[in-house]
């Protein structure tokens, strides 16, 4: 054993960072990433302007056509394109990684809770929390089980769904309570539903819509 090995052993070790520290660092990184992306100039800026101008022109033409048709009683032209889909934190998608939507609920603000009822029929169950604010932290609870995790617009998975592999979990109704907190919330303190309610009350509602959805392969 040489000095270097001895040194490595002699320096006191440290435990891994708390989930709260990891979530906060991840949120900061996501926020930086988002800012950098939005600040990056588009290589097709000129085309963008041209296309934008064309779209604006088309919108004016459509508006004039609608106005005229309203005056003359003629049915207006059909919309040029369907509206863009709502983000998942406002309306969870009907399918998630090949699984079908069982049930979903949404909340317009963070530091709030919602209950989700569903009846799974296959072991391949996923409980997905979609959050407007990247790095948001969720706590899911049912009965005596709880699970925390982080979520963003692409969704975060709750480990509670892993209980689908336990005997007796499938084929019955479930009611999961979900809390979502902002990225800076000290969720490490949350050990159960009462603590989650207390933390939500301390924080007060914050900006940040979210949704939770249950999917399965049934």
């Amino acid at each position: 054993m040489d000095e270097i090995t001895l040194l490595a052993q002699a320096i006191p070790d440290e435990p891994p960072p708390s989930a709260e520290t990891v979530a906060r660092a991840r949120a900061r990184l996501s926020a930086r990433h988002r800012t950098a992306r939005s600040a990056r100039p588009s290589p097709r800026r000129r085309w963008g302007w041209t296309v934008g101008a064309a779209a604006a022109t088309a919108a004016v033409v459509t508006a004039v056509a609608v106005s005229v048709s309203n005056l003359t009683g003629v049915t207006g032209p059909a919309p040029l394109a369907s509206p863009p889909p709502s983000p998942a934190f406002e309306e969870p998608p009907h399918a998630y990684k090949g699984l079908n939507l069982l049930s979903a609920t949404t909340a317009p603000r963070s530091a709030t809770k919602k209950r989700l009822r569903f009846h799974p029929t296959s072991e391949d169950v996923k409980l997905v929390i979609f959050c407007q604010e990247p790095g948001s932290i969720f706590f899911t609870h049912e009965g005596t089980s709880g699970a925390t995790g982080t979520c963003g617009p692409d969704g975060g998975l709750s480990m509670l769904a892993d209980k689908a592999y336990e005997p007796g979990w499938l084929g019955r109704d479930h009611q999961v309570t979900v809390w979502v907190f902002p990225p800076d919330a000290p969720v490490a303190r949350v050990s159960g539903p009462k603590a989650a309610d207390r933390l939500a009350a301390e924080f007060g509602e914050r900006a940040g819509a979210w949704s939770v959805a249950a999917y399965d392969a049934g």
Binding site: I11, P12, E14, P16, P17, T21, V22, A25
Partner: peptide, 23 residues
């Protein structure tokens, strides 16, 4: 690498410093 980097900083400075600097 986050956990590993956090541990390296915590062993050289402190856990509080690592909480700030690892990110």
């Amino acid at each position: 690498y986050f956990t590993e980097i956090h541990r390296y900083i915590a062993r050289r400075l402190s856990r509080d410093d690592a909480d700030d600097l690892a990110g």
